[in-house]
């Protein structure tokens, strides 16, 4: 029985009086593509921040790659962080470095590989993420929103992480690029045994890329299962989320 890559138990998160999570338990299994969905402000990004050790929940237990991360020190977290790639919602590229340097940051920091090898690898990751190698010479503020996402994905992939977190990877991408991104994620999962946790609103991605979908709302998990299961569900909350015209369009088109 393989251990879950991320295990969350009874997570409670409060900001002041505001309860964002009210008892969430969730396992991310090795090798799966798990999608987290939910309305804006339902606490998806916050949940992700807890999984990547940027935020401690108010109460509850988080285990990442088999380690309890409650009160973990930065030093202890470092080996875990190296095995995790994160793509932030707005890219979070470093403005003072070119795109190529941005993608090379993790490699330069954690390995002693030669600069030209790092640059080549950065280009490989850029093309993997769907950008022209020439884009590497640009500065982040010269990129469009979609390009910025792809560059951020390339950086998240730099160390071939076991566990990849994507916060709204396809928002801001045109449909073709979004399709290509889904393909890429599936391919990387296949080849590198990647486990992916992605936050998304994109119904097409949910149908095509996600093995399992978790619906957040009202601080709880309202539903979990494959897209087919959720689409068939009779639970009123789940129905409401997945039965809008956009959701149905995606099903007939992509499923």
């Amino acid at each position: 029985m393989a251990q879950p890559v991320v295990r969350m138990r009874d997570i409670v998160t409060r900001f002041g009086d505001k309860v964002v999570h009210d008892g969430i338990s969730l396992d991310v299994e090795r090798g799966e593509v798990l999608a987290v969905v939910g309305g804006s402000g339902s606490g998806k990004s916050t949940l992700m921040r807890e999984m990547i050790m940027l935020l401690s929940p108010t109460a509850g237990k988080v285990e990442v790659l088999g380690h309890d991360v409650a009160g973990i020190s930065e030093l202890e977290a470092l080996p875990l962080r190296r095995r995790i790639g994160v793509m932030f919602q707005h890219g979070a590229l470093f403005g003072g470095q070119t795109v190529l340097e941005n993608v090379g940051v993790p490699l330069r920091e954690h390995t002693e590989l030669h600069d030209d090898i790092v640059d080549e690898l950065a280009q490989v990751k850029l093309t993997l993420a769907g950008l022209e190698p020439r884009t590497g010479a640009l500065w982040p503020n010269q990129l469009s929103g979609g390009m910025r996402k792809r560059a951020a994905l390339a950086r998240a992939l730099a160390l071939d992480p076991e566990l990849l977190f994507l916060d709204e990877p396809s928002s801001g991408l045109d449909p073709l690029s979004a399709d290509a991104l889904d393909e890429l994620i599936l391919q990387l999962r296949e080849l590198l045994g990647l486990t992916v946790v992605m936050i998304t609103h994109d119904m097409d991605s949910l149908w095509r890329a996600a093995d399992r979908v978790v619906l957040l709302g009202e601080g709880r998990i309202l539903g979990t299962g494959s897209m087919e299961e959720l689409a068939r569900s009779n639970d009123p909350d789940v129905k409401r989320f997945f039965s809008g015209p956009r959701a149905r369009g995606a099903q007939t088109g992509g499923g």
């Binding site: 070119t98 190529l100 030209d116 640059d119 080549e120 950065a122 280009q123 490989v124 093309t127 993997l128 190698p133 020439r134 884009t135 590497g136 010479a137 640009l138 500065w139 391919q187 296949e190 080849l191 590198l192």
Partner: peptide, 22 residues
């Protein structure tokens, strides 16, 4: 899988030794 990995990487068309810099 390893063969596919090599194909994936080779398929990106990156020439070793020339990196785009400003």
């Amino acid at each position: 899988k390893t063969r596919e990995l090599f194909e994936l990487i080779a398929g990106q068309g990156i020439e070793p030794g020339d990196a785009p810099h400003p």
